[in-house]
């Protein structure tokens, strides 16, 4: 495979700019390209300013950050779990946050303050992370036992979510349901800054570990004989990428397939060297999620569909096409 990295990077940058323009121009209220530039860089009429700078730009940034976070942590989970089908949710993180958010909705906390839903979702995710962590301390963070404990945690949490739904009144049920589907429309702007900082710093740190993750994919024995304390390293990388996932999920709900599909596509395009793969998966997620979010706003306008529904449909179709492609073996 010819690895024409600079060219691929340029193409991605162009795609990113297109995604930005698309996100800024689509939606209710006609805004032209020139108006958009004016609003961003100088001054424009108040209406345009509000739409671009107060509504669309923050939402675009959130989509970029969340997409990058989900895609890069997916890439890392695939690496440390040595499983190309792992994603940020394999380890039960989404289950935990769904559980936390559902409790918040059931108690009516969303009416009291904006912070409660993301906070409870985040706490739920942290509980799930520590459950998996605690179950694996004795097992030395072996990939099979991590996947198994993650799947078990997911099942338990989703059962509890169902239980909450069964006793929830219908108006609360709808907003909880919309949240669970993955939704960028209901986030509070005050969350944008802390979440972006956590995710961006997390991704930057994880980018440094690319070669470490390469070596960890060779299994515990080889990694250890190359001088790595495998269990400890896997533990720290797991905690850090879980934190990224939890931050993303707590403010935009469960958005499926981004963390599975983006690393998959990038593995095909740039190969499997995680030093390159992690940053570029993050970049791909940062392009894909804003586009999906904008489409989910506009496709069925004025009704807005949850972006998680769209990413799952796109992701599902993508894997069906992969399966139908003759000749090549599935996956990678």
């Amino acid at each position: 495979m010819k690895n024409n990295l600079p060219l691929k990077l340029v193409i991605m940058i162009i795609l990113f700019i297109l995604a930005f323009v698309f996100s800024m121009l689509s939606g209710a209220g006609d805004i032209s390209f020139v108006q958009m530039l004016k609003a961003l860089f100088s001054n424009a009429d108040e209406n345009t300013l509000i739409i671009i700078n107060k509504i669309r730009l923050p939402r675009f940034i959130l989509a970029v950050v969340a997409g990058a976070g989900l895609a890069s942590s997916g890439c890392i989970f695939q690496g440390i779990l040595r499983n190309p089908l792992a994603d940020p949710f394999t380890l039960g993180i989404s289950g935990g946050s769904a559980f936390g958010a559902s409790i918040a909705f059931a108690l009516g906390l969303s009416a009291i303050g904006w912070i409660y839903i993301p906070m409870c979702a985040f706490i739920g995710a942290i509980i799930a992370i520590f459950l998996v962590y605690a179950l694996n301390i004795k097992k030395g963070f072996d990939s099979n036992s991590m996947i198994l404990s993650g799947v078990v945690a997911s099942y338990i949490f989703s059962a509890m979510v169902m239980l909450i739904f069964a006793i929830l009144s219908s108006d609360k049920l709808f907003s909880a349901f919309m949240w669970l589907m993955g939704n960028l429309s209901s986030f509070d702007e005050r969350l944008l800054m802390p979440v972006s900082i956590v995710i961006i710093i997390g991704i930057l740190i994880l980018c440094l570990f690319g070669n470490l993750i390469n070596v960890i994919t060779l299994g515990e024995q080889k990694a250890s004989s190359l001088g790595i304390n495998t269990a400890r390293t896997v533990k720290y990388i797991f905690l850090l990428s879980s934190l990224i996932t939890a931050s993303a999920v707590s403010c935009c709900g469960v958005i499926g397939f981004v963390g599975l599909m983006m690393p998959h596509i990038m593995r095909k395009i740039v190969g499997n060297d995680h030093r390159v793969l992690i940053p570029l998966s993050a970049f791909a997620g940062a392009i894909f999620l804003p586009v999906c979010d904008t489409l989910s706003k506009t496709l069925l306008a004025p009704v807005e569909m949850p972006v998680g529904v769209l990413t799952s449909i796109v992701g599902g179709l993508f894997f069906i096409i992969l399966l139908l492609k003759p000749g090549r073996k599935f996956a990678l």
Partner: peptide, 27 residues
């Protein structure tokens, strides 16, 4: 000082051979 080649080493990702050999330089 000492290197070890396990018997059933998992190879789950299609690494390029020369990159793969380079992992041995890690220490």
């Amino acid at each position: 000082k000492l290197s070890f080649l396990p018997q059933n080493m998992p190879i789950d990702f299609p690494f390029i051979v020369k990159d793969f050999i380079m992992f041995g330089r890690f220490p």
